[in-house]
Design a protein around this nucleic acid. Structure first.
Lengths: 166, 166
DNA sequence: GACCTTTGTTTGCATCGTCAACTATCCTTT
DNA sequence: AAAGGATAGTTGACGATGCAAACAAAGGTC
């Protein structure tokens, strides 16, 4: 049962709708924001100084590198990452400018662009990969036990879907 | 003990340094990224359409609203949020432009600027507050039990400090 | 096969954020 | 009290992003 106390002295674990966040709630919510920001900043900095890649461009290259066909549509990339389609389009612009990928026109769909790694992109990915994975493990995964990671995964899945139905 | 199997068929729960992330690791790591992105996007959108505030400007106004002296230094605001000092300086620019806060020169320190809510800023904050807190509870806090939130807080605190010592 | 709808991508505009360089002030030391 | 160094904040240049509108090509439908 959730503790819903309105106007008590401060022992409430959960606040009602308009109440200020309780310490418990603050810890979970602000903690998420701060932990994410810290973590991303560290990992991004690591990739950037060592390999000139942002975290999101790494993710894009990595998706391309493991894609079975070796090339992906913009929308496919966007769906698999956290970027909007337009954001991904611009990211691909930058990757093209840096010579890491090429845009190819799509055979089956004249609207489409397909994106593929260049040799240079493949090399950059390979160079960055091990170090980045080690970073992720050192800064994040390594700080939790297996069952904690499992539990965390479960937490995340509860946030995802929603949509909007009541 | 952590399962560290190198080169097995796919049953590994944890990978070694250079290995690709296992499903367990992926679930926790990508899940964090996605959950955060989804959550922030939803809350930001809610605040923005209803009250013309971004999540970070809400946080700044909220800090000002609950500050004992009613006004705060730029660096104080920056330290309490996730923005750099220069980022906060620009955010204050926007808030000033929108008439929600004022910059006052600081009595004790001639370099300093102090930031204080205007009546309009106070009003905007009050108008946004309840709806935003309800959003946070609906989209995030409400999906977890008390002890889960407590556990989550514990997780966050393990990411924070580090520094760099081995 | 012209028309309308849907879908994939790009672009215009605005916001938001960082780092590095700069200015202004403060503080300590001599 | 002048010099040197630390600290607070602002600004310039730039990079990312998102949303909405614009485009372009497919795919029906009649």
């Amino acid at each position: 049962m959730q503790t819903k106390v309105k106007g008590d002295g401060g022992g409430a674990v959960r606040g009602a709708d308009g109440d200020p966040l309780t310490p418990l709630e603050l810890g979970a919510w602000r903690g998420l924001l701060r932990a994410h920001a810290d973590l991303v900043r560290r990992l991004d900095a690591g990739l950037r100084v060592s390999h000139g890649l942002s975290l999101s461009s790494y993710e894009a290259l990595m998706l391309l590198g493991t894609s079975p066909r070796g090339r992906m549509r913009i929308s496919e990339l966007s769906g698999a990452t956290l970027l909007s389609v337009s954001g991904m389009s611009r990211m691909v612009d930058r990757l093209v400018r840096d010579g890491l990928v090429v845009r190819e026109s799509c055979e089956e769909d004249g609207r489409g662009a397909e994106v593929a790694l260049t040799p240079s992109g493949r090399g950059r990915l390979r160079a960055a990969r091990a170090a980045h994975l080690a970073d992720v493990r050192r800064e994040f995964l390594g700080r939790f036990a297996d069952d904690e990671l499992r539990e965390m995964s479960g937490f995340w899945s509860r946030i995802e879907p929603d949509g909007r139905g009541a």
